[in-house]
Amino acid sequence: MIKEYYQPLKLAEALTFLSVFPGPVHILAGGTDLLVNMRKGQIKPEGIVDLSKIEELKTISQEGDNLSIGALVTFSELAAHPLVQELISVLACGAKAVGSPQIRNRGTVGGNIANASPAADLVPVLVALDGVAVIAKQNGLRKVPVAELIVGPYKTSLEPGEIIIRIEVNVPPKGTGMAYKKVGRRNALAISRLNGVCLLKLEDEIIKDVSLIIGSATPTPHRFTDVEEYLVGKNISQELLEEAGVMAREHVLAVTGKRPSSNYKLPVVERLTVRLLQVAWKGDKAYA
């Protein structure tokens, strides 16, 4: 039973509350996962700290080569932000792929990470951008790459008393090709069957840098470094992308082993990889 519901205006107040509250306490950001799980009876918090009125967690700003995204920024705000659209349009694609307008209006970037669903729509983009989560607790800050923060399906290494306050992502160099794609059973309110993101930097048709993730294919989102390393330094061609597709598929098979869903997912991972690379290479829009 909920004994205390606390809605602070300042981050410091939230952190203090977390440090002193005696029972199980949950953090409410947008509530799009928390409330669902509470209704199902899967979690029974005694305390709730609602971050939604903490303005300092809602900003998006450019700091040098980084874009800093407040943890309480909603998917709708992220997708519509001029800096995001100008610098990292693929973030907007990932944000727009989430659920429905209602969910995008409530769900937050920090919440998407903290929930750690293997099918999260935005997290793969954050990981592809080498996103780093800045985490606060009562006496200090720590920074952890998003890829390391998520340690398993619905599991993070967040400790009691900690709050994700912002995410810092690299702004890709100018001329970086970007692609995002979500595969769902329907066109809205779908849980990703698979999704994927690709960033591609070419110089004279030579791949200088590439970041590739197929999400919802593995227990945690991570860069497909074996595929990336194979690609870097090579001359881009359709044949090369096809090879990358096969490698991505083998990568997923190696991570997950054969599963009932493999019949569908493995061939799609291959094609999705090829298409993401194609769009990042030649596309004029980031949505594959």
Binding site: S100, R185, R186, N187, A188, L189, A190, I191
Partner: peptide, 12 residues
């Protein structure tokens, strides 16, 4: 529930 029993949405 309707997260798993999928009805078409307006976008479908």
């Amino acid at each position: 529930n309707f997260d798993e029993y999928l009805l078409p949405t307006s976008l479908d």
